[in-house]
Every structure is written in structure tokens, then in C-alpha cells.
Deep mutational scan, measured.
Amino acid sequence: MISLIAALAVDRVIGMENAMPWNLPADLAWFKRNTLNKPVIMGRHTWESIGRPLPGRKNIILSSQPGTDDRVTWVKSVDEAIAACGDVPEIMVIGGGRVYEQFLPKAQKLYLTHIDAEVEGDTHFPDYEPDDWESVFSEFHDADAQNSHSYCFEILERR
């Protein structure tokens, strides 16, 4: 099963200049909980913004210009990325925008964090048809001392 995991502000903004323009430790914990011990696929820009392999996960970098870091697996196509994951129950696609666009048609599940923030962004989550998805989990949280904005975790499964 292919799943996408993303944090989205208003207007589906997911990033600005290779960074997330908010401070939500709870979302980072949600991300870790849902990706640990699963292969993660990301684009080169996302890889560069993280700066290191995510521990406890097979890191697969999709790029037309593969790098030389041998701590991760470099691939040039969506099919190659899927094959590099091996026989696993769930593959997690973690961004960025172009990689989400490439995998959305193949995805069966979306793990979304909806952030109540209007922020400037240069990267967006692809538009998706809500009628194609069923919400199977939703959990709202107010902003607090650690988390700069209110947010809602949601899991959607393709109908």
C-alpha cells in the first residue's frame, strides 16, 4: 500500500524555501509514529532540507540527478522507488510537492495534518478530489505552549 503523509496549511501550503513555516512538535511526533519502520520516499529537495537519513526507516530518494550519499537509496523513477521498498505492507511518501503529485494517483491512504495557519509558501500539496477519499480518523488539537497553531490529524482512505 502506498501512503502519503503531509502537513498542510491553508491553501495546501506545505513548504517555503525548503522548510515548513510553522513550529508543531506534535506533528513531528505524528510523522515519526506513522513512518517508523517503514520505507520513506522523498525528493532530493526534501532530502536536502532534512540533511540526514531518517533513523529507523529505509530512505529512498527520487531524483533525476541521483546523489552520492550511500546512506540512502537513490532512484530515478516512481517504479524504481516502489521496487526499492521491497515487499512491505506500507510505503510512506513524505514529499515534496512534485513527489506527492507523482504518487497521489497510486496512493491508497493519506495521513494529513491540517494546520490552521495562513502562511506564504512556494510548495503545495497537490489538489485531490475529496469525494474519492473517506475520512477514517480525525483528531483536532488547539494551539498550545509547544505548538504554534491549532491542527487536525486526519487519515483518508481511497474509496
Results as ranks from 00 to 15, higher is better:
135 S>G: 10
20 M>G: 00
133 W>I: 03
16 M>W: 05
38 K>I: 11
103 F>G: 06
72 V>W: 13
145 A>L: 07
54 L>V: 01
80 E>R: 05
72 V>E: 06
87 D>M: 11
149 H>A: 03
132 D>F: 11
24 L>G: 15
132 D>N: 12
11 D>K: 15
36 L>F: 13
51 G>T: 14
69 D>F: 07
66 P>R: 11
154 E>P: 01
49 S>M: 00
148 S>R: 00
65 Q>P: 03
51 G>A: 08
17 E>V: 00
67 G>K: 06
13 V>A: 05
55 P>K: 06
109 K>A: 12
13 V>G: 01
98 R>N: 03
83 A>E: 07
127 D>Q: 13
70 D>A: 05
128 Y>Q: 03
117 A>S: 07
26 A>L: 03
76 K>W: 09
37 N>T: 06
28 L>M: 04
10 V>M: 00
81 A>F: 03
144 D>C: 12
11 D>R: 14
8 L>P: 00
53 P>V: 05
72 V>M: 12
141 H>P: 03
29 A>W: 04
14 I>V: 14
40 V>M: 09
58 K>L: 08
17 E>Y: 01
47 W>D: 03
150 S>M: 05
2 I>K: 11
70 D>G: 07
85 C>V: 11
47 W>T: 07
159 R>T: 11
88 V>N: 05
122 D>K: 00
110 L>A: 03
23 N>S: 04
118 E>Q: 14
138 S>M: 08
17 E>W: 00
63 S>T: 12
149 H>S: 02
147 N>M: 03
87 D>S: 10
118 E>L: 13
40 V>D: 00
118 E>H: 15
63 S>P: 00
118 E>N: 14
140 F>V: 14
100 Y>G: 00
154 E>L: 15
9 A>M: 02
151 Y>G: 09
58 K>D: 09
84 A>R: 05
6 A>N: 14
107 A>L: 03
115 I>G: 02
85 C>T: 08
15 G>R: 01
24 L>S: 03
72 V>K: 04
55 P>W: 08
17 E>P: 00
93 V>C: 10
112 L>C: 10
65 Q>W: 12
103 F>E: 00
63 S>A: 12
71 R>T: 10
19 A>R: 02
105 P>W: 08
74 W>T: 11
12 R>V: 08
7 A>V: 01
42 M>R: 00
123 T>R: 11
146 Q>A: 06
56 G>Q: 05
111 Y>F: 12
62 L>Q: 04
152 C>G: 13
86 G>P: 15
125 F>M: 14
5 I>V: 00
61 I>S: 02
145 A>F: 10
120 E>C: 11
119 V>K: 04
140 F>I: 14
25 P>W: 05
89 P>D: 03
58 K>G: 05
100 Y>W: 12
90 E>Q: 04
157 E>K: 10
72 V>H: 15
19 A>G: 12
153 F>P: 01
74 W>Q: 09
147 N>K: 02
8 L>H: 04
44 R>E: 02
64 S>W: 06
117 A>N: 04
89 P>K: 07
92 M>D: 01
118 E>F: 13
40 V>S: 12
96 G>L: 04
90 E>R: 04
119 V>G: 04
64 S>H: 04
71 R>I: 09
114 H>R: 15
80 E>W: 04
130 P>G: 13
11 D>N: 03
145 A>K: 08
60 I>Q: 02
141 H>G: 08
80 E>L: 05
7 A>C: 10
100 Y>M: 03
26 A>S: 02
102 Q>N: 14
145 A>N: 11
11 D>T: 07
112 L>E: 00
129 E>A: 10
136 V>P: 10
47 W>R: 13
142 D>L: 12
32 K>I: 01
20 M>C: 00
111 Y>Q: 02
54 L>F: 08
86 G>E: 09
25 P>G: 05
118 E>S: 14
123 T>S: 08
132 D>V: 11
154 E>S: 15
51 G>V: 11
14 I>L: 15
77 S>C: 06
127 D>V: 13
78 V>M: 08
115 I>N: 08
150 S>F: 06
73 T>R: 09
41 I>N: 00
55 P>Y: 12
40 V>H: 09
158 R>A: 06
69 D>M: 05
142 D>N: 09
85 C>R: 07
151 Y>R: 11
11 D>W: 02
71 R>F: 07
39 P>G: 05
58 K>C: 09
144 D>M: 04
44 R>I: 04
52 R>H: 07
99 V>M: 12
121 G>Q: 00
150 S>W: 11
86 G>L: 09
63 S>E: 01
63 S>G: 13
116 D>P: 06
113 T>S: 06
158 R>K: 08
18 N>T: 08
66 P>V: 10
28 L>G: 01
3 S>Q: 02
52 R>V: 06
83 A>T: 10
124 H>M: 08
25 P>Y: 11
118 E>W: 09
97 G>N: 04
64 S>A: 12
105 P>Y: 10
64 S>E: 10
86 G>K: 11
134 E>K: 11
67 G>Y: 07
72 V>Y: 15
91 I>G: 15
106 K>S: 09
93 V>R: 01
32 K>A: 03
116 D>E: 14
48 E>H: 11
32 K>Y: 04
82 I>M: 07
146 Q>N: 08
6 A>V: 08
79 D>T: 10
72 V>T: 11
5 I>K: 00
139 E>H: 08
152 C>F: 09
132 D>T: 13
36 L>N: 13
98 R>G: 14
38 K>T: 13
141 H>C: 05
152 C>N: 14
126 P>S: 11
54 L>P: 01
76 K>C: 06
36 L>H: 06
75 V>C: 05
130 P>K: 12
5 I>F: 04
127 D>Y: 15
148 S>P: 00
136 V>L: 08
141 H>R: 04
10 V>A: 14
136 V>E: 08
156 L>K: 15
140 F>H: 07
58 K>H: 06
125 F>W: 12
147 N>C: 04
148 S>Q: 00
25 P>T: 10
135 S>H: 08
118 E>Y: 11
67 G>W: 03
134 E>C: 08
112 L>A: 04
77 S>E: 14
113 T>N: 09
39 P>R: 06
88 V>R: 09
148 S>V: 00
75 V>A: 04
130 P>L: 14
31 F>Y: 05
90 E>S: 10
38 K>H: 06
149 H>E: 03
55 P>D: 10
51 G>S: 06
